[in-house]
Design a protein around this nucleic acid. Sequence first.
RNA 1: CGGGGUGUGGCGCAGUUGGCUAGCGCGCUGCGUUUGGGACGCAGAGGUCGCCGGUUCGAGUCCGGCCACCCCGACCA
Length: 482
Amino acid sequence: MAEQGVTPQSEDFNAWYTDVVQRADLADYAPVRGSMIIKPYGYALWENIQAALDARFKATGHQNAYFPLFIPQSFMQKEAEHVEGFAPELAIVTHGGGKELEEPLVVRPTSETVIGHAFANWIQSYRDLPLLINQWANVVRWELRTRLFLRTMEFLWQEGHTAHATQAEAQAETMQMLDVYADFARDQAALPVIKGRKSDQERFAGADATYSIEAMMRNRWALQSGTSHNLGQNFAKAFDIKYLDENNELQFCWTTSWGLSTRMVGAIIMGHGDDQGLRLPPRLAPIQVVAVPIFRNDDQKSDVMEAITAAVQELQDAGIRVHLDNRENVNPGFKFNDWEMRGVPVRLEVGPKDVEKNSVALARRDVPGKEGKQFVDRPQMLSTVTGLLDSIHENMLREAAEFRDAHLHEAATFDEMVEILEAGDWALAPYDGSAEAEDKVQEATKATSRCFPLDQEPLPQGTACVITGRDAIGKAYFARAY
RNA sequence: CGGGGUGUGGCGCAGUUGGCUAGCGCGCUGCGUUUGGGACGCAGAGGUCGCCGGUUCGAGUCCGGCCACCCCGACCA
């Protein structure tokens, strides 16, 4: 029998990832290096992410709009840090309609500049504020090294852009959206994340401060899964985004931006998957329940199909995403393995014995083998499935949190820090926020600073950075990161 | 962009001391038997051997160049 599964995680985590993405039909390689084809199953997952986030954006007062893919090159050059930060990864269009363009067009790597330009026109008075906009779009960054979902030259995301009258309001917005991401990760994706502030090296080019949610993958690498920036008045000044306040005085706005991309799909894959393949969080899974009929002959077939069709209908009517696997060229055992690899949270089986006893079998993806399988009376099916979906969500979240917490350690000295990082875990230590300290850690361990977690007490006066010995500005997590 | 590797039916590979009709496994199509944890039999379909050039009576195989992809590093959501 040929090996039909994916490379085990323990053997080669990156190979496991690549295997799973392709075998589970999430994505495919495209003709152009570094770009990807998102297949229907992967896109359905993204659509569910979109729907959940979009609802949260609307609930917090944001409106969707769409800004153009092409940005005049001069726009990118108006904000000093922004130019420098993005210059190496820009795709630039120099020709159109067979002629060289007067001014080259940048394919957006992010939209602060075009949106800043528009905001400057839209905003006149304090009555126009706050302006709360989001767009769902594709962006392009010319990456050297790419990986499906985690880093591709073109990716899908949403980018929120807001303008406010005061610094405090902008900061409140920045933190609110970080919370939205963290809550989404926990409540929809079953991923516990750490909210924190980025070091200066990791800060967005043009931001005063960048915050992120960091998730731990099953190989203990960190994955930045969402970011929220307080842009201060940097873009307001570069694009002349001004308003008249109540005293008829002209003021610069305070702006923010925040984004979450298809990288979240990678976070879900690597944050939950096991040696069998994907494990999708029930609230985002494109298929929440897969129904597998089992029969030996035509008599049984008609009885079983009738029963299972009714069961599927009942679940569907209750709003559950169900797929009936009625393929006849593969046997049930194959289907079990196939759907487990694809990460479907719940499997419903109906066989002759179930028809006879008016029952169904339900198996949960997060608990392997017989332990995770139960037979329930048909009238209890719907309530059991509903309960299972919630229970699987809670269990996946708990497992991920326990795994993460088991691999977080505090370091009191540089040696301790190196020891923790070399073992592959995350180290939390007082850090002065400097680039030279970060470089030193990276040289020693390949790990970088992930964030200063928001959830921490202020350090006692004079606490030393474990790397440089200078005054620390807070405790930061360091880890290997994608 | 540096280091390593790989390009042979859809996928995974063998064939590489040049030799005639390029094989194997999986998958695919048809028919039949199967079906509660990755079924089996029989019959089929499917290949400009990554591309270009060279050597040779003869190139998947040797030589040169190019391209693509994967892995590891440096840079990044």
